[in-house]
Amino acid sequence: MTSIDVARELLLRTRNIGACIDSIAEPHRKVIELRNELSREPFGELDRVVDDLSAELRSIEELLSRGMVNEAWSSINVYEGRVSLMTPALRQLAGLKRGMRAMGVVASPELLAIEDMVLGSDLAEAEEALRSFGTAGSAAVTKPEAVSRSEAEERSCAICGRMVRADLDQCPFCGWEVGAPSAECPECGSTVLRSFRACPSCGKGLPTSIREGTVLPLVID
């Protein structure tokens, strides 16, 4: 084999490497896109899921860095399939986590266990657990004794009606401040703050008698 033959073969090999590098760009763009999705809903609440999926994306990048483009595409397809299957459960889980955090519960072992189930692809089991947790959770809102906190530590928000910790000065759901003067709307009967000019539920203007004490009297000489 002469040098020119070697060079021609080498040129062919170099062109193949070039084609391989070209083909890496598209799956890599896809990986970047998938990674960006992890910073959006419902992943924002789910650190462990994000860690797990990020590790999977890193392993896809590892394949790409070694020029294994077909394997990387296969892994991307598997990843997308897995995420699309997980997403409904993840949305539910994220919602529950947000609710729990709003209620002052930082970490719930039940929700962490469900997160593990989702990560372990036990989706049917996770959905079942989410359903039962959701039922227990909504019961907890109407029946404070079902929650781990005692009834004495929680109270119902006068404006939105959700259960909030008794030691909070402000409702984490609607922002109502405890101790702000409230009254009942004569039209729809919902609780309104006395400082309101109109009822936020029915939109009717509130009479002056309700707003008494919060409106400065007009002084006419």
Partner: peptide, 29 residues
């Protein structure tokens, strides 16, 4: 031709690096 091809590949590798992907030069040959 081979050197021109190689320079073009190096440019693409640098572009990928700037987007966070470091190519394993040994593995891709």
């Amino acid at each position: 031709q081979g050197r021109a091809e190689l320079r073009s590949i190096e440019t693409k590798v640098e572009e990928l690096r700037s987007r966070g992907l470091v190519i394993d030069r040994h593995a891709v040959g």
